[in-house]
């Protein structure tokens, strides 16, 4: 167990040296901040409540304008997280398989399952950290009314946390699967970004697909049950964990039982 913890901390130290993490953190911050200014401006002009009540997309959020704000930025964050996750995991997993670093680790007394799980955990939490930090920092920095509201409503915070973790799990599982299947940085990067973005675009028509489902899930977890049918809600809740778990299991099996490190 001690060795496994050591392996995780080793991988964590290595991934934290990855400069793209900071770059994408700034990108996410910008996307959130821009949105924040937009909503704040509308509200100060007195038009935000009107906007919320007349927009079909957010009728169910009437009286909960903070939810609108966060759920709207969720889609921006999702797209940036796709880019972050795919690049990060492509460089951290596919590249190390491709250039032989994984082979080097596997030539030492470290089990393949430990190598895979440690990399997976580190990728997942690094990816989750980016949107969480971006959201929290921006929420606390931009408008003092937001944190007060959030502090009054623990459910909002928990909902945010659940959705971000689900989102990170989904992106990590797709990117790791692309890395393990392709064992090539370029193919992993473009495969992962392509798959995730196409599903994101398609989600415009199918609300239970990510990323539209992420905003919907956030609202649902906040306690609003009225945005869709029971079936759509169930699919939206089940889709991300189910896809993530299946892909993760297949990647694990392939990496530990089938992969040849030549």
């Amino acid at each position: 167990m001690n060795k496994f913890v050591k392996l995780i901390s080793w991988e964590a130290r290595r991934i934290l040296r990855f400069p793209l993490l900071e770059i994408f953190l700034v990108l996410i911050m910008l996307s959130v901040v821009t949105e924040m200014f937009y909503v704040s401006q509308r509200m100060s002009e007195g038009s935000a409540p009107l906007l919320l009540s007349t927009s079909r997309r957010i009728v169910y959020l009437y009286g909960k304008w903070i939810a609108y704000n966060v759920s709207h930025t969720m889609s921006n964050i999702f797209i940036v997280s796709i880019l972050t996750g795919s690049t990060l995991i492509g460089n951290f997993m596919a590249k190390e398989i491709e250039n032989g670093t994984t082979k080097l680790y596997a030539s030492h007394p470290i089990s393949r399952s430990h190598i895979f799980i440690s990399k997976y955990i580190v990728c997942f939490f690094s990816l989750a950290l980016v949107p969480l930090l971006a959201l929290l920092i921006s929420v606390f920095m931009i408008d003092p009314r937001f944190p007060l509201y959030l502090m009054q409503n623990e459910r909002e915070i928990i909902s945010l946390l659940i959705v971000v973790l689900l989102m990170s799990f989904y992106i990590t599982s797709v990117s790791v699967a692309c890395s393990v299947f392709s064992r090539n940085v370029a193919m992993s990067l473009f495969g992962s970004i392509g798959i995730l973005l196409v599903i994101n675009i398609v989600s415009g028509d199918y609300s239970y697909l990510p990323g539209r489902s992420l905003s919907s899930l956030y609202v649902l977890f906040c306690g609003n049950q009225s945005y869709s049918s029971q079936i759509e809600r169930t699919i939206a809740i089940v889709f991300l964990p189910l896809v993530g778990a299946n892909l993760s299991f297949i990647s694990y099996y392939l990496f530990t039982r089938r992969m040849e490190l030549s």
């Binding site: 040296r17 080097l104 596997a106 030539s107 030492h108 470290i110 089990s111």
Partner: peptide, 21 residues
């Protein structure tokens, strides 16, 4: 049983050591 590799050392032909440590 990768634990057996405790008793084995290897140098690969083109070893790819992590450059950042």
């Amino acid at each position: 049983n990768p634990a057996i590799l405790k008793k084995v050392g290897i140098l690969h032909e083109k070893p790819a050591y992590p450059p950042d440590v």
